[in-house]
Structures are given as structure tokens and as C-alpha cells.
Design a protein around this nucleic acid. Structure first.
Length: 491
DNA sequence: GTAGGGTTAG
């Protein structure tokens, strides 16, 4: 491309596919050079070339450059907007992506199907890293737009809407759309199945999976959904059956994610030794997801030897993962190994591993309220802490015992209990209790996995206040009601 | 003739 031989000059039609190829090959150095060529030849202002450049920079992670190209553009097409929204969404800026989508609507640019499917993940906010950012308002805006644009009969759009309902905790709404769909594909089925898994509904998981198998061949992703759902619902035998049938019946080769699910399944059920044997017999090298599952099992069933085994491999394979250090430190604490727990936190600091700050979000009247540990930024803070104190006394009378394993360890016990009270989960729930009608369900969303003490406390809170509380965490949903949780403490 | 989009888990 640099020095065209034989006098063949590239024109504006040449650049987009070539830039796409650079992204595909991951050769962004070449992409930047081609950008230079395009500029030199005067094609940088061509809308197609511009859009391709934005897409290329987005895939290379250079969002700033992409944004600059976008901002400097005089004429933008729907594709330009969609590409830029995607660039923000896929590079960890879902809030900016949604803001840009709003701006697009304000500037009267008509979004299309691709735009919808690009912004949808920002509303759905999957995974834990960017969770809890999108408000219900955004979701309604986009859902409404889908209906107005008559896109609601589109298979992929409907699937995305189902996903958004599942992830906002409205399983029934999701199921209603699912049942009414004229056509469903593998993705639709996988989402609905994993949705039931996230909510701990094992019966429906198996029911749907059995129905699905008659209609189409499940793929490796379906099996991850089904296996993890079995593990969340404590369906040990059914999980084994699925795992075996995956290869024998469907010819799908098990990957590390499937092994990780099986280790998780066995580990949660307390069969740690069996899980260890299972790892030993694996035909592929266990990766950090497998060891992570094993360590996760030790959180529920503390075992010094197995913990050591998992931790050793993890620190070698994935030394920068902060969650693992915290988990390990908590396991040591529950094993009574206070010294070790402390040294893990020291090691973490020494290696410069940054903790992800935990927070809980609650939505009231279309507004999001975010709470950090010990947060005092809310205008109602005084009231919240007073109510919290009262509520803690009430649940203690009902039998709640604070579990200081989840508190900071280098402080006195009384302070530990106090710091437990200030966890973001509890603050958000109390804020919800104060500001909503007595019969309404409280919905909160934590960016990390819910803390064990908060999980116990919330069960008691649901009992003494007679409130339904739905908590979404980074892994699943917990539906609290009358002192019980839908996860059956099997998380 | 060229550019943008949905699914799994620990």
C-alpha cells in the first residue's frame, strides 16, 4: 500500500476493507500507516474511510483517537454514530456510549437495528466490571425505541430484550417474550437457560434444556450455561449427566470452562477431594478458571490443603487478580489462620495489586444511588445510619450473628462489627427501606460478589421487615424473602 | 464495489 507499483493508486473504496483486515489481523501498526496514506491521498474526510478508521482505532483500544476522528467529522452517518457508540461500549465506557446514543437521538439521527444491538450491552451491563451503570431509564428509552422502530419482531433484537429483562431480574417478563417468539435460535435458548441459572431455578433449566435438545443441537456455550446452572442449583447428578452427554451425544470437546463448571459443581457440594481428582485427570492443562473454581469451593468448605494447592497455581498463573487475594485471605481467616490472612494482604500490596472498590447501587424514581463502604455522601446519611443501627438490633434479636470473617482483620472486634454494618449492601438496603412503600420489592445491585455477612443479614432483614429483596451481584441473583434466599445458600 | 451488531462462566 505504501508504494503502489505499476502506478495503481488506491482510491476511497480501497481503504475500508484494508483497514478491516488490519483489525482482523491485529496489525494496528499497519493500520496507523494506512491512516497516514489515506490522509496523504486526501481520503481521510470520506465518510466510509472515516468510519473504517474509527472502527480500526476502536479495535486497537485507542478510543481517544477514534473519538477525535469522530468529533472532527463534518458529516456523520448512522454508521459513524453506531461505530463510535460501539467503540465506547467495547472499550469499557458504557456510560459514555449511552450518552452518545442520547446525543444521536437529540440530533435527530435515526438509529437502526445495528445501533440497537450496539447499545444494548450497555443497558444489559453484563459481567462485573461495568455492572450497575445503566439505569432503568436508559433501558426503557432503548426498549421503547425498539418498539417504535418496529424492531421488536426481529429475532436478535427480541433476544437482546430477553437478556435485558433477565439481567434486571424480571424473569417472568423475559419468559413471556420468549414464549411468544415465532422463531428462536441457539442464542435465545442459551440466554433463557442461563437466565434461569442466574436465578437459581434448576427445574426450569433442565426443562428448557430438554425441550431445546429436541429442536437444535446445543453448542459449547449452551453447555456452560447448563453446567453452571446445575452447579448453582445443586443438581450434582444432572450436571454429571450433562457433562458426559456433551461429548458422547453431541460430540463437543470439553474446554477449560466446562471443567471449571464441573469443579465448581463438585466443590460447592463439598466434594473437594473429588474435585481435586477430577482436575488431576483432566486431559488438558487446568487454567486459572479451573483453579479459581477450586479456591471458590474452599470459601464455602474451608480446607487448608486444597486451598494451598489452588492458591499456589493461581499465584503463578494469574498474579494480578485482586479478587483471588481477597478470597484467599478470607478463607485463611475462616480457617483461623490470622497470620496467613494478613500476609496475603501484605503480599497483595507489595505486588501492587489494586483492589476493586465494592459498591452497591439502588434505583429510586429513575435515579441511581450508589453506596461505598462507610459512605456518608448521601444526604440522608444520618437517617440511614440511625435506621441501620436499629435494624441490626432487630435482626440480632431474630438470631443474626455478625460474621467478622468478612471484616478487616487488623482491628479490634467491636470495630470489625461496626465496619461490617457499614458495608455498601446494607447501606443501600436501608436506604431502600426508608424510601419505598412497605409492600414494594427492594432491588439492589452489587458490583462484586455479595459479602457473606451481608447475605446472612439480608435474609434476616427480609424476615423482620417482611420485605422482598432482590440482589444482583457479579455472579447471580439472590431473591430474599421471609428469611430465605433463592440461592439456598448455595452460592 | 467500501464502514457498524447479539450468546457462556469462574
Amino acid at each position: 500500500m505504501r508504494q503502489p507499483r505499476g502506478g495503481a493508486q488506491p482510491n476511497n473504496f480501497t481503504f475500508p476493507p484494508v483497514l478491516k483486515a488490519c483489525s482482523y489481523l491485529g496489525d494496528f501498526e499497519e493500520g496507523v500507516k494506512i491512516h497516514g496514506d489515506a490522509a496523504e491521498l486526501g481520503y481521510e474526510s470520506d465518510v466510509f474511510v472515516r468510519n473504517s478508521l474509527i472502527a480500526m482505532y476502536s479495535k486497537s483500544g485507542a478510543v481517544d483517537t477514534a473519538k477525535r476522528l469522530f468529533d472532527e467529522m463534518p458529516d456523520r452517518s448512522v454508521v459513524t454514530w453506531t461505530t463510535m457508540i460501539g467503540a465506547l461500549a467495547q472499550n469499557g465506557h458504557p456510560e459514555e456510549a449511552l450518552a452518545l446514543f442520547r446525543r444521536m437521538l437529540e440530533e435527530r439521527v435515526r438509529p437502526n437495528r445495528a445501533t440497537f444491538l450496539t447499545v444494548m450491552p450497555c443497558v444489559i451491563s453484563r459481567g462485573c466490571s461495568n455492572s450497575a451503570v445503566a439505569s432503568l431509564r436508559h433501558a426503557q428509552l432503548i426498549h421503547g425505541f425498539a418498539i417504535r422502530s418496529l424492531l421488536i419482531e426481529d429475532l436478535m433484537v427480541e433476544t437482546a430484550v430477553i437478556d435485558s429483562y433477565v439481567r434486571r431480574g424480571s424473569l417472568n417478563s423475559a419468559r413471556r417474550i420468549f414464549d411468544q417468539m415465532r422463531e428462536k435460535n441457539l442464542v435465545t435458548w442459551s440466554i433463557m437457560i442461563s437466565g434461569y441459572g442466574m436465578h437459581g431455578r434448576g427445574v426450569e433449566v433442565l426443562e428448557l434444556f430438554n425441550r431445546m435438545k429436541c429442536l437444535m443441537k446445543p453448542d459449547h456455550i449452551t453447555f456452560v450455561s447448563v453446567l453452571s446452572a446445575c452447579s448453582h442449583a445443586g443438581l450434582i447428578d444432572e450436571g454429571w449427566q450433562c457433562f458426559n452427554s456433551m461429548t458422547t451425544e453431541f460430540g463437543i470437546v470439553a474446554h477449560s470452562e466446562h471443567y471449571a463448571c464441573m469443579v465448581d459443581l463438585l466443590g460447592r457440594a463439598g466434594q473437594l477431594e473429588k474435585a481435586r481428582e477430577f482436575i488431576e485427570k483432566m486431559p488438558i492443562k487446568p487454567d486459572c478458571s479451573v483453579w479459581g473454581s477450586l479456591l471458590g469451593a474452599c470459601r464455602i468448605h474451608p480446607d487448608a490443603k486444597i486451598t494451598e494447592l489452588a492458591a499456589t497455581s493461581l499465584f503463578e498463573l494469574d498474579p494480578q487478580n485482586s479478587g483471588r487475594y481477597i478470597l484467599l485471605s478470607n478463607i485463611y481467616t475462616s480457617l483461623g489462620k490470622i497470620e496467613e490472612a494478613h500476609s496475603i494482604r501484605v503480599l497483595m500490596r507489595k505486588r501492587g495489586v489494586k483492589k476493586i472498590a465494592g459498591y452497591t447501587v439502588i434505583e429510586l424514581n429513575n435515579k441511581l444511588y450508589k453506596f461505598l463502604v462507610g459512605d456518608c455522601s448521601n444526604p440522608q446519611s444520618d437517617l440511614i445510619y440511625r435506621e441501620l443501627e436499629r435494624l441490626m438490633d432487630r435482626i440480632k434479636e431474630a438470631g443474626y450473628v455478625p460474621n467478622t470473617n468478612f471484616a478487616l482483620h487488623d482491628v479490634e472486634e467491636e470495630t470489625q462489627v461496626k465496619s461490617l454494618y457499614m458495608h455498601s449492601e446494607k447501606l443501600a438496603i436501608v436506604f431502600g427501606l426508608i424510601n419505598t412503600r412497605p409492600e414494594s420489592t427492594i432491588r439492589v445491585h452489587k458490583n462484586l460478589r455479595v459479602c457473606g455477612d451481608c447475605h446472612t443479614a439480608t435474609k434476616f432483614i427480609s424476615k423482620v421487615t417482611k420485605r422482598k429483596i432482590v440482589m444482583r451481584d457479579s455472579h447471580r441473583f439472590h431473591h430474599f424473602s421471609d428469611g430465605e434466599c433463592s440461592c439456598g445458600d448455595y452460592w
